[in-house]
C-alpha cells in the first residue's frame, strides 16, 4: 500500500505532532519504505490463525475494590508545567 503526503499529514494530525511540509515529505519517503517492509506480511498465509495480543495465554487478574491511594496532589503537581488552585491549566477549551 503506497503512502501519500496526505497520509503522513493525516497521521501527524491524529498524533498531534506539528509537521512542516518539508518534514512531511521526508517522512513520506521513510514511512513508505517501512510500510513496504510491513507489506511483506501480506504474503504470509494466516487463514484461521487467531491474532496474538500477548505472548502468554494468561487472563486478567482482578483487584479487590479497596481505596489504597491517598491524596498526593502537591507531590504529583510538582512536575506539572502549569497549575492553579489544584487544577492543571491548558489554553482555553472552546466547546
Amino acid at each position: 500500500m503506497s503512502l501519500e503526503h496526505a497520509d503522513v499529514q493525516r497521521a501527524a494530525h491524529l498524533a498531534r505532532i506539528a509537521l512542516g511540509d518539508d518534514e512531511a515529505s521526508h517522512y513520506v519517503d521513510d514511512l513508505g519504505r517501512i510500510l513496504a517492509m510491513a507489506d511483506q506480511l501480506q504474503a504470509v498465509d494466516t487463514k484461521g490463525v487467531a491474532p496474538l495480543a500477548h505472548p502468554l495465554d494468561s487472563t486478567q487478574r482482578l483487584r479487590a475494590d479497596e481505596v489504597t491511594e491517598t491524596d498526593q496532589r502537591d507531590h504529583f503537581q510538582r512536575c506539572a508545567p502549569a497549575v492553579a488552585d489544584g487544577l492543571y491549566l491548558v489554553p482555553r477549551v472552546v466547546e
Partner: peptide
C-alpha cells in the same frame, strides 16, 4: 458505585478537592 476506580486504588467519592483523588495511574 465502586469504592475505588476501575483501574486504580484512588477513591471515587464525589465532590472532593480538585485532583486530590487523582493518583499516579489516573494521571
Amino acid at each position: 458505585a465502586t469504592r475505588s476506580k476501575i483501574f486504580s486504588g484512588a477513591s471515587t467519592a464525589f465532590g472532593a478537592e480538585p485532583n486530590s483523588q487523582a493518583c499516579a495511574v489516573d494521571l
